[in-house]
């Protein structure tokens, strides 16, 4: 390849050289491997969920929609979904109330408190959530044992660990939308702070709020270590339901587990496409936004 001499000017920007052809091949090869690795387990879940029996053979012996109907009408599944959705919505609402004013203050009013929030936001990103769960459990058992195992404590802890998703999205939106000028204009025309926030700032940053909230909700919906440690089987969310099905004490649970897992992936995929749509519509200047983290 070093035999190649200076490329003629006319060919710059086109993909005619051998090198480019190689990297073209490598590019698609890499992507196909990736999609294969990520897609095959999903395919296995889908096939198992519609199989009458599938064990020790290459293909199932027959197909049925029974497991899907069973899973989607099971009261255990529906109430687990309900609990997970409730947690996701509760955490989002708490985070809206706490994060939006705080991000506003740190961008517009008093930039000196920004490093505080940035330092706090690093904690759940750098530290394993099981460590935070351990800290919370031992703290509560020591100080307020009555709180242990309550939904309130779970919501509070989940709000704490997921606040950075919303904080980063909102802070970023405030900066790109010139929140400082917007709020100065609003204050000059005599609007109070709550009114400025609700009628000027929030509408301007709504896409940031949306994408941050979706990340928060997706992350709460699948959360395992904190839920398991702080409340456990007493409040069976969807991930805890899948755990009970996996441990195999329920006969025939595998197919329902497969159906629900596949459906969850599909649902989150739809949500994620939505986030991408929102993000490309606003084109944030944010250099790095950490992904939602669940495991």
């Amino acid at each position: 390849m070093s035999a190649q001499t200076v490329a003629p000017l006319a060919s710059t920007g086109t993909t005619t050289s051998n090198d480019e052809a190689d990297s073209f091949l490598g590019r698609w090869g890499a992507l196909i491997l990736l999609i294969g690795f990520l897609g095959i387990p999903l395919l296995a879940l889908l096939v198992f969920s519609v199989a009458t029996a599938w064990s020790g053979t290459v293909l199932p012996s027959g197909y049925t929609a029974e497991h899907w109907i069973g899973a989607l009408t099971s009261s255990d599944v529906l109430s687990a979904v309900g609990r997970s959705l409730f947690l996701a919505v509760a955490v989002c609402v708490i985070n809206w109330i706490l994060v939006i004013p705080a991000a506003y203050v740190s961008v517009v009013v008093e930039p000196r408190i920004r490093p505080w929030f940035q330092a706090l936001a690093v904690v759940p990103f750098a530290l394993p959530w099981i460590v935070i769960a351990a800290g919370m459990q031992l703290t509560v058992k020591e100080i307020a044992p009555g709180l242990f195992g309550t939904v309130g404590l779970l919501v509070l802890t989940l709000s704490g660990v997921t606040f950075p998703y919303l904080y980063w999205a909102v802070e970023n939106s405030l900066i790109t939308n010139n929140a400082k000028q917007l709020s100065e204009a609003a204050r000059m025309s005599g609007a109070s702070l709550p009114r400025t926030l609700l009628q000027v700032i929030v509408p301007a940053i709504r896409t940031g709020v949306m994408s941050g909230s979706l990340l928060t909700a997706a992350s709460v919906f699948g959360e395992f270590p904190i839920t398991m440690t702080l409340i456990g089987g007493g409040y069976e969310t969807l991930p805890l339901w899948t755990l009970r099905m996996f441990s195999g004490r329920v006969p025939g649970a595998g197919a329902e587990l497969a159906a629900v897992s596949f459906a969850t992936f599909a649902l989150l995929f739809a949500v994620s496409l939505l986030i991408t749509r929102i993000d490309t519509a606003t084109k944030p200047a944010d250099p790095v936004r950490p992904p939602a983290r669940i495991s």
Partner: peptide, 24 residues
């Protein structure tokens, strides 16, 4: 956009369901 969304979801798919898929 589609590939990124797929990756995004896969990165948060770590639960008993995924373990079950690998068992299959």
């Amino acid at each position: 956009g589609v590939v990124m969304s797929f990756i995004n979801v896969a990165s948060s798919f770590g639960g008993p369901g995924l373990a079950f898929a690998f068992m299959l």
